[in-house]
Computed example of a mutant assay.
Amino acid sequence: MADILILNGPNLNLLGQREPHLYGSDTLVDVEASCRAMDLATLEFRQSNHEGQLVDWIQEARGARDGIVINPGAYSHTSIAILDALNAYQGPVVEVHISNIHKREAFRHHSYVSGRADAVIAGLGVEGYRAALRWLATRLA
């Protein structure tokens, strides 16, 4: 069974409370439970509001995890450091956005992370996490 790291960036700890018209009512705990219920891989979920912490976790995944699912939140549009860490990671990476970033403010239309991601899922709501896991499980099989 594949070993997958699921990373969540800033403000995703407020999922279910923050802007439910954009992000829905499911919490990050709900997302984790629904992903674990799929039983497709060994999963580790982490969330941080701190860029450096996300970089550290990506670096730790080198040689230790088969794949990464990352919702970098606002760091998608600003973080070359996260991009560089992902570029040093050898496995497949799926970038997930709950909302469709291309229908939002212009500054959200560009993601540095997309330059490294093997797949990008945007606008499926929290279903995007499950779609990412299905894709990774197939790719890693």
Rank of each mutant, 00 (worst) to 15 (best):
A141C: 10
G128D: 03
L5I: 05
T27Q: 05
R46E: 12
E19I: 05
M1S: 13
V69G: 07
T78M: 09
L28W: 10
I70R: 07
E19M: 06
D39K: 14
M38G: 13
F45D: 02
G125F: 02
H50D: 08
R116T: 11
L140I: 05
D118W: 12
I58G: 06
N11E: 00
A122N: 02
P72T: 12
N11V: 04
A106H: 14
A37T: 10
R139G: 05
N100S: 04
G128A: 13
Y89W: 02
L40I: 15
C35Q: 04
F107S: 11
D118I: 06
G115Q: 05
A106T: 15
R62L: 13
A119I: 12
I68M: 01
I98R: 09
I68Y: 00
G24L: 01
Y23C: 08
S25K: 15
L14Y: 04
V120W: 05
S76M: 03
L140A: 07
D84L: 06
G67W: 06
S111L: 00
H102N: 04
N13Y: 05
A85F: 07
L28M: 02
I58R: 09
L28D: 04
E127L: 13
R104S: 08
E51N: 08
S25G: 07
A81S: 05
Q59V: 14
G125D: 02
S79L: 09
A64H: 13
I101L: 10
S99I: 06
S99V: 08
A2Y: 07
A141T: 13
Y129W: 09
A33F: 08
A74L: 11
K103E: 15
L54R: 03
P92E: 12
A122K: 06
S76C: 04
M38L: 15
G67Q: 07
N87S: 14
D39Y: 09
N87R: 15
L22N: 06
I6P: 01
N87P: 00
M1C: 11
G63T: 13
L5Y: 06
L133F: 05
H21C: 13
H77R: 05
I101C: 03
A74V: 14
D56C: 03
G123F: 02
I68E: 00
G115Y: 02
A64Q: 12
L43N: 01
R36G: 08
D39E: 14
Q47I: 12
I4K: 08
E51H: 01
L133P: 03
N71A: 09
F107L: 06
V55Y: 05
E19Y: 10
N13K: 03
V120M: 02
Q53H: 14
R108H: 04
I6V: 03
V31R: 10
N100F: 01
S114G: 07
L133W: 02
D30N: 08
K103D: 15
G73V: 03
G73D: 09
E127F: 10
Y129T: 07
G115V: 00
I68V: 01
K103R: 15
R134E: 12
W135S: 13
I121S: 13
G123T: 07
Q59Y: 10
R65A: 11
L54A: 00
S48Y: 11
L83P: 02
I68S: 05
E19F: 04
T138N: 15
H50P: 02
P72N: 13
M38Y: 09
I80H: 09
N71M: 06
